[in-house]
Design a protein around this nucleic acid. Sequence first.
DNA 1: CGGTTAATTAGCTAGTCGGTAAAGTATGCC
DNA 2: GGCATACTTTACCGACTAGCTAATTAACCG
Lengths: 111, 111
Amino acid sequence: MATDQLSVVFGALADPTRRAILGRLADGPATVNELAEPFDITLPAISKHLKVLERAGLISRGREKQWRPCRLEAEPLRAATEWMGRYRQFWESSFDKLDDHLRTLMKGTGQ
Amino acid sequence: MATDQLSVVFGALADPTRRAILGRLADGPATVNELAEPFDITLPAISKHLKVLERAGLISRGREKQWRPCRLEAEPLRAATEWMGRYRQFWESSFDKLDDHLRTLMKGTGQ
DNA sequence: CGGTTAATTAGCTAGTCGGTAAAGTATGCC
DNA sequence: GGCATACTTTACCGACTAGCTAATTAACCG
């Protein structure tokens, strides 16, 4: 996968286990074992997923006694959402049913 | 990569070439050669990228004479954006700086 | 200290990804 | 038909990914 920030973030989101982990973290911080509990995969596999999420800046990790609590860091999702925002008009209106010429024309009118 | 729709869409977006192709298609339909022109990669590589985008439902392809014009289909981005929407509060407010207890408490108040 | 719990690292396998070159398919046009 | 244009498919390659088991590190507890 490419190394630019957006690619890393989208790449991190392209896995249901990682999205589920983020979902869990939306309810508050959790330890690695707590995060692993719902899944049928081993702890090392979870550890790898967490590293991917950390590289994407989607989680941060503390140190508390023998636990390493994870916490959600949603900031990178702002950039991802903003990137998608460019296309919002194409799914919120019926513009995507029109041909290019007409679309260009209408864009010029400020709608 | 997993096969659920959201994973396939995020996976398709996790590559800068594919995102650039979508960017080009936002200006209107284009043929494969037109899409390939800005890049330093071979046509087969572009063809593969297009197949990934098509599998994600992000483009559709027609047939006009000997050309196979591609057109943007932004609909899948709606689901992707909606998924991220769950986390909007975490980057639009300072909630993500507070601890879980406080966040839970404030959520109960409706903001 | 020794043992337990928490989590990461190392090393392996199988499969996917992004790219290539070369061959194949489809259509248009003389 | 025959040739050119526009892609696509096939076969291959090196790098990366997701999973495993086994071993290691780190911190607490008695």
